[in-house]
Amino acid sequence: MDMQRQTALSDFRAGAMATLPAAVAGVPFALLIGALAAEKGLSMAEAGLMSALVFAGSAQFIGLDNWQSPPAWFLLGLIVFAVNTRHIVMSASILRHMGGFSVPSRVLALLFLADEVWAFAEARAARTRLSPAFYAGLVAFFYASWVLSTMAGVLIGGVIRDPKTYGLDFAFIAMFVGLIAGFRGRPGFALSIGVSAAVATLVHLIAPGPQSIIAGAVAGVAAVTLRPSTGEGG
């Protein structure tokens, strides 16, 4: 029992450390979302509620961009659904590694499946067992900092500059590139990321938007799945 608790605690800590950089780099983006929300007439409580219930940076940015007064809830729902379609494949994929979760904790965990949470959960599952404690660690501080920073952004809105000026969007890019490198031992690795990157970029150039992620991912996965079997799995 004590041993189990210790394992859970160290798993939780490992999860929290994994998303710590995302939590830190996410602060200026959350501040910006808070400032944008305030501009659209949302109160601090409402902005906090949005970050707490949606917890998806790009969807919140695009949702607020399309925010009218009064807000068109159906349109906003559609837009957010379109931006978040990648989470459909992410949830199907990570569920394969949630054997150690009870059904209610599985549902609860999936509700917090932000990109970074998913990516680190996959990276963990590739090395060892994905435990509920590790997953909880991934979410806890990242989520709290996202919600609180959004609320702070409503207050100090005007002073926020574009975090991209400081290269902070590349914290996430570097994080994802590092995680991609962690999968390099898998069969068809180079083919899948090559095709995915090419198709995603092409679709982005033709029609910028979230569909480039799905198009690239589907193409990359299809390339690996449908290639003639070489028998050596390289």
Partner: peptide, 25 residues
Amino acid sequence: GRIKAAFDALPAAVLAAIVAPVLLA
């Protein structure tokens, strides 16, 4: 089988599709 191969290739492919347009375009 192939479905498993598809899922195994998925994480890297999704992440590549997220970063590629930022890096290349």
